[in-house]
Amino acid sequence: MNLRKLLKMIYRVYINFKKGILDPEAEAIKRTIDSMGYKTIKNISKGKFFDIEISSSKNTLGDLEKISSDLLSNPIIENFKIIKK
């Protein structure tokens, strides 16, 4: 890994549905996996993630939290989690 890559500041924001909200896409994928013959798959939930590269570490987490709750996720239906890559 080169130095430039090491110095990059990238955060990953994961978004997924809150518990109890029907996700018909995940259900359809689960049914397809069942039809492929796999017997041990109990449940599937689907989510998405954003890799966000930032240029300064000042206020980063605060800003990312705001961006995540204000735009990337809808708090009524979704949770988000931020990790440093």
Partner: peptide, 10 residues
């Protein structure tokens, strides 16, 4: 209030 999400049968 609320959110409008994928129709139940997609």
């Amino acid at each position: 209030d609320g959110a409008l999400i994928d129709n139940c049968k997609r």
